[in-house]
Amino acid sequence: MLTIRSLSKRYGDIVALDDASFDVRPGRIVGFLGPNGAGKTTAMRCIFGLVRPGAGEISWNAQPVEHQHRLRFGYMPEERGLYPKMRVGEQLAYFGFLSGLSRSQAQQAADHWLSTLGLSDRARSRLDELSHGNQQRVQLATALVHKPELLVLDEPLAGLDPLGIEAMSALLVEQSQKGVAILFSSHQLDLVEDICEDVVIIDRGRVVLDGEVDRLRAETGKIRLEVAIDGEGWTPRFDGLIEIGRGHRHASFLADRGVRIEEILEKATTEGNVTSLSYGPPHLSDLFREAVGR
């Protein structure tokens, strides 16, 4: 288990991390959320010793993280990058070797990942001869080539098309089922909600929400209401409901759990022909908005 305790980091006057603490457990996928500049990348870099924290502790299975632990971690940085002129197969094997595999193990692992990603025939191509999407796949394979116990992925979904996102999601779930601990940051909250069991929300360097997604959604004491009516330019008004989104014919609200649905339905019916009304626990994006407070 990766344990982060009281992590702090300042760059001059800018506070990147402020007493941040959270865990990543084996076999779990943790969505690491936060607005731009919240400190996600800094926290991830701290795990790999790329940034030295001002204070705090990072440990793996109760031991302070050292170089030999990091060889068992896999990292995909936000800024993607590999050697453009190096052959794909050689490149994967090289990174496998740097992570402690023997030459032959590294070669096998490189072959395995290239065939898994459907790139076996490109093993001898230079990286810059590959399409953008395929370069992304090689980047991911680089993080996975040494069978890491912890995967840290900074914005792994950024720049992927819907098919790519699907494949990436499937791969993350598969890795977590093998017992890999996964920490990944993203701005695509609906996807995070689908994939992740746990979520850490960070804002201005502080962890503002942390826990199991389902539990957090249940614990808010709020429900999410969506009403749609037949008619253009609807401006709904309900006392005690917080409007969180509106389109031409529908609107979404956060309400206290004790709200009387029948009253809302009744009021909506007077303003138009209600075509649908649904309610349930709030979305992750609602929790996010509330936690970040803007």
Binding site: L50, H67, F73, P77, L82, F95, L98
Partner: peptide, 17 residues
């Protein structure tokens, strides 16, 4: 410079000092 501009430095430095 190549490792910096290609941003591969971060990938390498997550593995070697």
């Amino acid at each position: 410079l190549e490792e910096k501009s290609n941003r591969v430095a971060e990938v390498v430095l997550s593995r070697v000092r």
